[in-house]
Amino acid sequence: MKKVLLAVTLILLMAGGSFADTLINGAGATFPYPLYSKWAYEYAKKTGLKLNYQSIGSGGGIRQIKEKTVDFGASDAPLTAKELSEAGLFQFPMTIGGVVPVVNLKGISPGQIKLTPDLLADIFLGKINKWNDKRITELNAGAAMPDDKITVVHRSDGSGTTWIFTNYLDKVSKDWHDKAGFGTAVKWPAGVGGKGNEGVAAYVKRIKGSIGYIEYAYAVQNKLTHTKLQNRDKAFVDPSIESFGAAAASADWRNAPGFYVVLTDQPGKNSWPISGATFIIIHRQPEECGKAKIVLGFFDWAYRDGAEMAKSLDYVPIPKNVSEIMEEAWAREIKCKGQALWKR
């Protein structure tokens, strides 16, 4: 018995002390999770530095970095300049993606159905509740719309996907703005809730006549039927790496306070209207400078060497001119004991 106790104490002592090598913890958005963990895996192989990224959702990423339980947070929903300065935080974009409406309709192939912003909002408001509603059939004369009830599927958890999607609806529909607003979680006027992108995908797959919204990479993974959407220039577009890139092209990062850039409803003939950047959030004056430096080193590497990996996983990399703006800002704004932490 004594020996066992001794052994256990020894193990605990060793565990607490000498074996501790540096581990960087990050948490947040689900959408870039596959990409960040791919990067972290390759980075650990190359440098031996470990970055543990856990996808708990954008809301979680924001809160955990505020409570300092993690070394960096990640969010699809940007914080405003005011929110950032109040909490002493700093954010920068890492990759760009899009949110896609997906449907489950018999005999309808991906991209066959066209929707306008108004229609999309009214469907999610529960105002249009049949697929053969006149407003839908008029727009989609070629497609045989079934006489099915529309079941709206939304997220049950707080989510950056929801933020981007509802931000778009809020911009294009006054009714939506009055009734629901936008946020990582909203009070849904209609529908059922699934946890995570996967929960929504599973419901859409299972429920006949359903419509949900989902991150592009998950729609591709699950082979779901997306719709075309009318953008600000009145063109109907399909979601793709290119159309997300087109939406991001006109963003003015340099002059956006706190890099608060929202890519929904952007101009451009090829722009996918529900696009968004996903952000990393760190403290402006980190307490653990060594760890903060590793975090920046990792994302610097990801900007430079991670772009190809991003494309292979269906993500849009941040263009070089934008990443340079970001690294300038790191050097200017991230301070450790009054000294700049990042030197270019």
Partner: peptide, 10 residues
């Protein structure tokens, strides 16, 4: 955690 962990504080 995606990695090994032997540290009670992580």
């Amino acid at each position: 955690n995606s990695f090994w962990n032997f540290n009670v504080a992580e």
